[in-house]
């Protein structure tokens, strides 16, 4: 169950060159939202847009393809997309909301739907929740340190960041690529990530990530009825090029392995927290 419930799992990438150009992987998120927007399945989507500081995301409600395009790509620091979920139904006037987020943000979406304690009139307005895979996230200042101190690159000149093949990568405008081993990045991680028990956004309608597929492609899990509906329509409309996901070492097996590793490691953290201190303990959010 480390991969959650899903109806289908495929390798896919967008057929739209423009989307692919600035997308992190196969442009699944941007493409699916663009399609849903065009078809009126959603009125807008909450994505991690640009802000005044380089690589610091600012949650925005995108209601045009241009705004979706401007928010492509992974920012390895916090984008509190949930903070706009209620406001999207208020001053933005949305009735059908798309939202992208990490696994923990997908958990937040579902909690908001089942326990809408401060989320009046939100539960039935979530029309498409797209989850991304996530091993960990970082505070903004951590990313600054990794890029500027460890990779020796200015934040402004970075064109893409990536984590993969055991390394953290920073690509720059002039084609230079800096990389550092992940063991350097660990201390910079967000502490809250160490109790996280979800790698592949089990609670999303559709979830996607790079692991499991070749460069430029994405692994896609279609999970819910809503997700299945949108995914099949979008596929039928020619939005995606798809192929079967590999079952071998670099395919689904790798996804399963990473998910298992993450969950096992973080279960241990949770156990350790239970007896933290002397005769004391730290809180377990899952009890």
């Amino acid at each position: 169950m480390v991969l959650g419930n899903y109806k289908t799992c495929v390798a896919a990438r967008s057929t739209d060159k423009e989307i692919l150009k600035g997308a992190q992987d196969g442009g699944i998120v941007t493409q699916l939202f663009a399609y849903a927007l065009e078809e009126g399945i959603i009125d807008g989507a909450i994505v991690a847009g640009p802000s005044d500081e380089p690589w610091k995301p600012e949650p925005i409600v995108a209601t045009t393809k241009a705004e979706l395009l401007a928010a492509r790509g992974t920012k390895y620091n916090l984008s509190p997309n949930m903070s706009l979920l209620k406001e999207a139904t208020r001053s933005y006037g949305l009735d059908r909301i798309g939202i992208v987020g990490t696994p923990c943000q997908m958990q937040a979406v579902r909690k908001a739907q089942l326990y809408p304690i401060g989320m009046r009139d939100v539960p039935d307005k979530v029309a498409l929740a797209i989850g991304i895979f996530c091993m960990e996230n970082f505070p903004y200042q951590s990313i600054e340190a990794l890029v500027e101190d460890h990779c020796n690159v200015k934040m402004e000149s970075v064109t893409k960041m990536d984590i993969g093949k055991g390394k953290f990568w920073a690509y720059t405008e002039r084609g230079a690529v800096a990389q550092i081993p992940l063991k350097v990045t660990h201390k910079y991680e967000q502490p809250g990530c160490h109790v996280c028990l979800d790698y592949v956004s089990n609670l999303a309608d559709v979830s996607t990530g790079s692991v499991g597929t070749p460069d430029g492609w994405s692994t896609v899990f279609v999970r819910t009825k809503i997700g299945d509906d949108v995914w099949s329509k979008a596929s039928a409309a020619g939005c995606f090029e798809t192929k079967e996901i590999e079952s071998g070492k670099t395919g689904l097996e790798l996804v399963t392995k990473l998910a298992t590793d993450k969950i096992t490691k973080n279960q241990k953290t949770l156990e350790g927290r239970a007896t933290f201190g002397v005769g004391k303990g730290l809180r377990n959010p899952y009890l």
């Binding site: 001053s91 933005y92 006037g93 009735d95």
Partner: peptide, 12 residues
């Protein structure tokens, strides 16, 4: 705190 969007105005 905030104005409303044209979409919201239309809805209203």
């Amino acid at each position: 705190y905030t104005n409303i969007s044209p979409l919201a105005k239309q809805k209203v």
